[in-house]
């Protein structure tokens, strides 16, 4: 039997790695991938608590999060294509059209 806190530790480790990826990398595609990692870490939490209390509601919420991740990936990659077409670069710190 694995204590539920170990799942929480795994989840927060993955979440922290995802945050590090979002705040330190310059490549926009890697930033999107790090966001997927963070969403995935949250799913582990939900399923672990679901197992703890013996109900499937956590699974349902995890399905909604996966739906959300799919929508986010589709729109985000569309934005990346539009950005690349206009600026010929993939660097996140070049995205400064709305800054003054």
């Amino acid at each position: 039997m694995i204590p539920t806190s170990h799942y929480l530790f795994l989840s927060l480790g993955l979440f922290t790695i995802g945050v590090i990826g979002v705040v330190t990398r310059r490549n926009v595609i890697v930033i999107l991938m790090s966001i997927e990692l963070m969403l995935n870490a949250v799913n582990i939490n939900l399923v672990a608590f679901s197992r703890l209390v013996g109900s499937v509601e956590g699974h349902v919420f995890a399905i909604f999060i996966i739906t959300d991740a799919a929508a986010e990936a589709a729109v985000g990659l569309g934005i990346i294509i539009a950005f690349f077409r206009n600026r010929e670069t993939l660097l996140g710190d070049e995205m400064d059209l709305l800054k003054w």
Binding site: T16, R26, L91
Partner: peptide, 23 residues
């Protein structure tokens, strides 16, 4: 093109520090 560029942004140490504090 992107293979030869710097992969981490200028304030990466600050971001890394904040992320580690969060963790």
């Amino acid at each position: 093109v992107s293979l030869n560029q710097v992969q981490f942004n200028r304030q990466w140490w600050l971001g890394l520090l904040l992320a580690l504090v969060l963790g």
